[in-house]
Amino acid sequence: MTCTIFYSTEMPNEQAKVTGGIPTKPMRWAVDYVVKTPDGRTVVQGEKTIQRATFEELRAVMNHTIGEIGDEVGNEATFVSWRATAHGGKKKNRKGGKRK
C-alpha cells in the first residue's frame, strides 16, 4: 500500500490531493516541501521524515513546519507546496492461506 498526499497553495479550496488509501494506523512519512517568495526565488526546499504519524497528525506537523518557515521569511511566501508519501502497511497473504 502506498499513500501520497500533495498540498499546494495553488490548489482549489486549498485541499490536499490524496492518492491511494489513507492508512488507518500511524505510518512513517517521507516529506518534501518547497517555499517561494514574491521575487521568485526558492527560500526553502527540504526533506524530512516524520516517524509514526496518522494522516491528521501529519497535516498538523506540516502546518506547524510551514508556519515556522513562513515566520523566517517574514510571512511573504507566494507559493508553498509539500508532498508526503508512506509505503508499507500490513500485507495480506494472497495465495494459499497462512504459512507455517
Results as ranks from 00 to 15, higher is better:
residue 2 T to K: 10
residue 2 T to C: 11
residue 2 T to A: 10
residue 3 C to D: 03
residue 3 C to M: 02
residue 4 T to Y: 03
residue 4 T to S: 10
residue 5 I to H: 01
residue 5 I to G: 02
residue 5 I to R: 00
residue 6 F to L: 02
residue 6 F to N: 02
residue 7 Y to N: 10
residue 8 S to G: 08
residue 9 T to H: 03
residue 9 T to R: 01
residue 9 T to F: 00
residue 10 E to W: 05
residue 12 P to T: 00
residue 17 K to V: 04
residue 18 V to L: 04
residue 19 T to I: 03
residue 19 T to N: 08
residue 20 G to P: 01
residue 20 G to E: 03
residue 20 G to K: 07
residue 21 G to C: 02
residue 22 I to C: 00
residue 22 I to S: 00
residue 25 K to Y: 06
residue 26 P to N: 08
residue 27 M to E: 08
residue 27 M to V: 02
residue 28 R to E: 00
residue 28 R to W: 05
residue 33 Y to Q: 06
residue 33 Y to E: 07
residue 33 Y to S: 03
residue 34 V to Q: 11
residue 34 V to L: 07
residue 34 V to W: 12
residue 35 V to H: 01
residue 36 K to R: 10
residue 37 T to F: 06
residue 38 P to F: 00
residue 40 G to M: 11
residue 41 R to A: 02
residue 42 T to W: 11
residue 43 V to Y: 15
residue 43 V to F: 14
residue 43 V to M: 15
residue 43 V to L: 15
residue 43 V to Q: 15
residue 44 V to A: 14
residue 45 Q to G: 11
residue 46 G to D: 13
residue 46 G to T: 06
residue 47 E to K: 13
residue 48 K to I: 11
residue 48 K to S: 14
residue 48 K to P: 04
residue 49 T to H: 05
residue 49 T to S: 03
residue 51 Q to M: 04
residue 52 R to G: 00
residue 52 R to A: 06
residue 53 A to R: 12
residue 56 E to W: 13
residue 57 E to A: 15
residue 58 L to Q: 15
residue 58 L to D: 11
residue 60 A to V: 05
residue 60 A to K: 08
residue 61 V to F: 14
residue 61 V to Y: 15
residue 62 M to H: 08
residue 69 I to P: 01
residue 70 G to D: 15
residue 72 E to N: 05
residue 73 V to L: 09
residue 74 G to M: 11
residue 75 N to S: 09
residue 75 N to I: 11
residue 75 N to W: 14
residue 76 E to L: 06
residue 76 E to T: 07
residue 77 A to W: 09
residue 77 A to R: 01
residue 77 A to K: 00
residue 77 A to L: 01
residue 80 V to S: 02
residue 80 V to Y: 00
residue 80 V to M: 04
residue 82 W to S: 06
residue 83 R to T: 15
residue 84 A to D: 10
residue 84 A to K: 12
residue 88 G to S: 09
residue 89 G to Q: 08
residue 90 K to E: 14
residue 90 K to P: 06
residue 90 K to N: 12
residue 91 K to Q: 09
residue 92 K to S: 09
residue 94 R to Q: 12
residue 94 R to N: 06
residue 96 G to M: 13
residue 96 G to I: 14
residue 98 K to L: 08
residue 100 K to Q: 12
